[in-house]
Write a protein that binds this DNA or RNA. Structure first.
Lengths: 331, 331
DNA sequence: AGCGTTGTCGTCAGCGATGACGTTATCGTT
DNA sequence: AACGATAACGTCATCGCTGACGACAACGCT
């Protein structure tokens, strides 16, 4: 049903190949012929099929972006960085949301790749090198964010100083006199969670506080998880006077829970978040948190991917983005 | 470089067509042959090329979702509804972000369609029937959200009672005694803005208040726009005692601005938002707003698109989603 | 024995485009 | 006048896969 090159060629009275040349601006074409073809294209409303083209060129000028939760403002901001940069470089971006399901993370990459996208940026929850290599061809570069996989050709890395950030936060709480510091830690498996827990331990150790496993609770990563997690943790360990949260959403949930429990924040329970999403300065109390330059992470990831696309085979060192503690009202 | 059917066929000692039959589970195949093919597929790590398949079948089991701002929680929640429902129906979803650029809205749909996606859901800012028909073939169904285009085969509609919502909000403010009610109204052109302005006028009229054009300010749709818009509007019209905002993000900006200007909310300036995003109950003061069931909108849109896909040529009536005023602290 | 049926495959063309290479006319050069 | 270079096209095979159709053996039935 769609208009094909054949029809354009017919109407313009030239060969299909000539139409292709005009469309792709390649080879030598006389002005007259070009004009005729252009008119035919316009008349018929012809649009080249990217699918057919992709079949032979193996390029689509489209990249994929895969992450776990579109409703997470942290990821939105990262995405903004990716999108702006990609648009500048004339790449289309297709976004896939995995909903945090490991299975789905794999499916998303597969699907994108099977659609012949040129490369992908993944904010992995469960991705590991093994299955990425299984799915992606060496000439399909992948950039991983917040992940400690060793770089190799076709694999790019953008990491955040998450461990340091967690240490800064916990150290701050400890210096304020808190000795019983709980942590609401997101899921169990993902590397970014593990790193933040590591930083939490670093912070405790730095202040001579013994790490207690039972003060770390793995909940989800959304507001509700923070709410439920806080209720649970404070019920089991009322001695907790401060909470370090995996992210600001959890911190918001924690604040809600404290309000409900009659615990004043920060006096009865100090709360520190992570990411510094836009909303964390607006809630009450404003959240003390670890700032991450999310847009920059996206920008770097996108740039790196484009570099890899233009420069196949090259191997790039990881990019590491720094963090900073922002003190507000909640701790 | 990727493994093709040919290689699988070679290794299994059968024809390409037979491999195709196994992969697609069609036709009669003996168990023995199927087994051999399956083993070859597994050995070689073969994955069918969706591109090649799409070229001939014109189906990819993938739909597109197009909207303006991935960082807008309203859209995230709608997306969640779309994604869950589509996943249930075994459709992959590719999301495109237009950044609110009219040009880009067109490009996104074109790109998706040229990749042979089966259909698309658009949260249009500038889309109109003309160019949608120009771009989409009749057999590529499109569902439009919050848009007043007349339904026709291939075009589905999900609308929200936006005008009513705005009326409810403004009526509430007027009944509280406010006579100088300003509006921060997002962009100029989009239909959803126009409808909310209409509702704003309805609300005024209902209470015998004259509409004044200069009290309506077109700003952007993000927090910063609300901040700037409020400063500007209150500077020019200090008599304003209440602000109706196009969405909750703007309302948040308005609250920030009021704090900065030393205006107490709601005493010195009442503020009502729209959408009831999750964060609006968390900020301080909690935002009085018009509740919209965002997830449901996404769910309905996705369902409708799937229906249209399975039922080509049918014509569906628009779905209209109701709204509700939620009273909190800001007004 | 002859014939239709059914189960299992294979052949061939074509989806819409592009890359590699071939062809033709024209022109300048020695 | 003969020849190579160049501009401006055209031909053909191919990308990986599927639909339409055909082939052939085994089987049952009259």
């Amino acid at each position: 049903m769609p208009v094909t090159m054949r029809e354009v060629a017919l109407q313009a009275g030239v060969s299909i190949k000539t139409v292709s040349r005009v469309v792709n601006d390649q080879g030598e074409i006389s002005d007259l012929t070009r004009e005729r073809v252009l008119i035919a294209i316009d008349n018929l409303g012809y649009r080249p099929s990217k699918v057919a083209r992709a079949l032979v060129t193996r390029r689509t000028d489209t990249i994929g972006l895969i992450f776990g939760d579109i409703a997470n403002p942290y990821l939105s901001e990262v995405s903004l960085g990716v999108l702006d940069t990609a648009a500048n470089e004339k790449f289309e971006v297709f976004i896939c949301n995995t909903g945090g399901i490991p299975e789905s993370e794999k499916r998303a990459l597969t699907s994108l790749l099977d659609h012949n996208i040129d490369g992908a940026i993944i904010f992995p929850l469960y991705a590991n090198r093994i299955w990425i290599q299984e799915i992606a061809q060496p000439d399909q570069p992948i950039v991983l964010m917040n992940c400690d996989i060793v770089p190799r050709p076709g694999l790019g890395l953008i990491a955040t100083e998450m461990r340091k950030g967690a240490r800064l936060a916990v150290d701050y709480l400890a210096k304020k006199g808190h000795r019983n510091i709980g942590m609401l830690a997101g899921e169990v498996a993902p590397k970014n969670v593990i790193q933040r827990v590591q930083g939490y331990r670093d912070g405790l150790e730095l202040n001579g506080i013994k790490y207690r496993d039972e003060l770390v609770l793995n909940v989800g990563t959304v507001i509700e998880s923070g709410k439920i997690g806080t209720q649970q943790l404070l019920a089991q360990h009322p001695e907790i006077s401060a909470l370090f949260c995996y992210n600001d959403l959890i911190a918001m949930g924690a604040i809600e829970a404290c309000k409900k429990l009659g615990r004043r924040v920060p006096d009865d329970c100090a709360i520190v978040g992570f990411d510094n999403i836009r909303f964390s300065s607006l809630v009450s109390p404003a959240i003390t948190t670890v700032h991450v330059d999310k847009y920059e992470i996206g920008r770097q990831a996108s740039n790196r991917l484009v570099d890899m696309l233009r420069n196949p085979g090259a191997i790039y060192p990881p990019i590491i983005v720094d963090v900073e503690l922002i003190i507000r009202e909640s701790a």
